[in-house]
Design a protein around this nucleic acid. Structure first.
Lengths: 226, 226
DNA sequence: TGTTCGCATTGACCTATGTCAAAAGTATAT
DNA sequence: ATATACTTTTGACATAGGTCAATGCGAACA
């Protein structure tokens, strides 16, 4: 996929005239990152933001003891690291490629001068940031108001919705990564998968999950107890 | 304080020409809310956003079992409920007044048409949303990577910084509310205050806190164990 | 066909924190 | 002052989930 069409299909740039897209493509710098490669790190001075062209990128925080909490996993077309563009400071988290990925880098100063005369783009940006805030609201809610089984159930239902409501779904990330995304550790996650299987809520075969009791999962989502 | 000057002093509108400020003031609708009064609720259709003129407002989520997690506490000059203005949907949380408060309501449609031709305002908005995202990043980090003592220590240091770095500080909210803000319950918070007092890290007299061991609190913030 | 490496699972154990219940403290109004 | 109601504290207890350590499993590779 070429640079131009990646940019054109990113929702951040939806609805912009071709000429604008071309202008934006002009400032994008493609970079290829190997699996596990660092893209930026927490506290690092931010001189631009990124969009995933191909691959998968995780953004995460790490505690002093080394435990990691994934904030987001991004796929093709999704922008990340955009917050410091508008707060003029450092990245608030780390980003690495989960698999070999190509990202587009947009230098801050160039980009800002570009949006200053482009209202539709700016409205898209506002939309993006707002959606992201909403996601965080949900994440805080989950971390504080739900036990791990409830969070996992939510995640599975979310995945199902994402994969055409199929009852057959495959985890897009390893179980270890999933544990971090859900704010727990692999051992705990493994036990909960086992309990959910016993109770015939799901069937687990490696990364392939079958939802056996959709309704039951919805209940779990709400009342949390397994 | 009159409407005009409240608006002029809100950081969201910093740097705008007087004439713009007047225009914005023209669309603001003041509303007074009694202590405990509801401003909006989770899932409610959003037709505008708010700015606190006087008082104190909490924004929070509630679990099915009734446990509440405070997302933010807002004071004079701070905007809240602005996310749905750009995502075109419902409020993702609840808001109530902690004490008798006056808020300014800005109807969505009017406000959007206003920003469409106002680049500086839009940049302020982008800055606001970005800062808020950063705060959420921190909150997720705290909830997932730190035990309650670490979160409390962080909060106390934050408060100290906010109150001219004084070692004497007073809690702006009740301990029960603080528990919710930190993602825990009053009993647990009370015990941690007691332990921190025993260890001579702080002295607690009602809502008045004295920081006795600043360095110790910083360590707690990082390694979490008390 | 082994060998190796990373991921996943399982077991034994421990601790932070939530639950439930009661008492103590504080504030407000009559 | 005294009553009423709310907030905070304290105690006894239960448990979710983290830690540590060992084992199992599967994919890539020699």
């Amino acid at each position: 996929m070429d640079l131009q069409s990646v940019i054109a299909s990113a929702s951040l740039f939806k609805g912009l005239p071709d000429q604008q897209i071309a202008e934006i493509a002009g400032i994008a710098q493609p970079r290829t990152i190997p699996a596990g490669g660092l893209i930026f790190s927490d506290g690092e001075e931010a001189d631009g933001f990124y969009i995933v062209a191909q691959g998968k990128v995780k953004v995460f925080k790490v505690s002093l003891e080394g435990k990691e909490q994934i904030l987001h996993i991004f796929g093709p077309g999704e922008p990340f690291g955009e917050v410091p563009v508008f707060t003029g400071s450092a990245f608030p988290a780390n980003a690495t490629a989960l698999i070999k990925s190509t990202v587009l880098f947009f230098p801050k100063t160039t980009f800002v001068s570009l949006i200053e005369k482009n209202t539709p783009l700016v409205l898209n940006l506002l939309g993006l940031l707002s959606r992201r805030l909403r996601q965080f609201t949900t994440q805080v809610e989950h971390l504080s108001l739900k036990e791990v089984p409830g969070r996992l159930a939510s995640y599975l239902l979310f995945l199902s919705a994402e994969q055409n409501n199929s009852l057959q779904l495959s985890l897009p990330i390893s179980k270890g990564q999933l544990a971090s995304l859900l704010g727990t550790i692999p051992e705990t996650l493994s036990r909960i998968f086992a309990r959910m299987s016993e109770k015939e809520l799901i069937r687990v075969e490696g990364r392939e999950i079958t939802l056996l009791d959709f309704k039951g999962l919805e209940i779990l989502t709400e009342d949390g107890r397994l």
